[in-house]
Design a protein around this nucleic acid. Sequence first.
DNA 1: CTAGTAGTGACAATCGTTTCCATCTACGGT
DNA 2: ACCGTAGATGGAAACGATTGTCACTACTAG
Lengths: 138, 138
Amino acid sequence: MGAPADDLDLIGRRTAQRTSVVRALIDHGGFVGARALHDELRTQGAPVGLNTVYRTLAALVDAGRADVVRDRGGERLFRHRPFPEHQHYLLCRACGLSAPVDSAAVETWAEHVARTSGFAEVEHTVELTGLCPQCRTT
Amino acid sequence: MGAPADDLDLIGRRTAQRTSVVRALIDHGGFVGARALHDELRTQGAPVGLNTVYRTLAALVDAGRADVVRDRGGERLFRHRPFPEHQHYLLCRACGLSAPVDSAAVETWAEHVARTSGFAEVEHTVELTGLCPQCRTT
DNA sequence: CTAGTAGTGACAATCGTTTCCATCTACGGT
DNA sequence: ACCGTAGATGGAAACGATTGTCACTACTAG
Ligand SMILES: [Mn+2]
Ligand SMILES: [Mn+2]
Ligand SMILES: [Zn+2]
Ligand SMILES: [Zn+2]
């Protein structure tokens, strides 16, 4: 379990709101949008301003404690990352379930491309989406 | 050179506006946003409604004649794709210059993950960004 | 040529996200 | 424990990209 304490120390003052946001993100267990997290906090009786949700999530991303992906509609989805290691995910387009994937091969490939391209400060975005076992009915 | 004719046949009626948009996209030579393309068309004396620019680009993407990436701000950037083969790019965060990259290794990796994951209809997004030789001046 | 349908574009609406700013509060001195 | 203040909060307004609406236009099949 990633203790909220660890995360909170990295992002500034320890406020009730930030504590709530971090805990809600961890509890959620997968990728969530800021809006959805804001709703969950409100229904859980720990209302936090949407603005603060955005700021806390941004701070977590800066601190390397959260990963971000863009869903089909362009919305940013956040997921808590307990370990400092860079991660990629395979996530379900229907239910949002996410599974970390072993991306060693891609990292190697990306580094190779970076070295032989002439470009500097090369970064990569790698996202896999699909339909999880539960969701592939029809 | 991809002749606009080929592309226009795939997306419906042959109108002056679509012809302009397709030609402007090809002429641009790299990734462009709808807004920027709209501006270029206006300054070139071939004004087209922004809405039509969006619709034409969407049609090209549907027809597999254009690739899309999201820039940092979430804006969608489009690039004409003369060949039907799936492509990935390395693009400059400063000037927008893009270079196709050999992604065979990633395709293999993605297929492997898909087969062993239990997920169905797995799709992938792979984008590399960096600073091109011209732009890495600090 | 004409009918009929697909396309156009000005405008408004949406959606996610950011900025503003007046107010509040955590917390390192004292 | 008590301040003072930099940092944090949140409601409202601003923003930028994209999509919906709908009256009008113009391809194109016949
Ligand atoms: Mn990676
Ligand atoms: Mn690919
Ligand atoms: Zn699912
Ligand atoms: Zn460049």
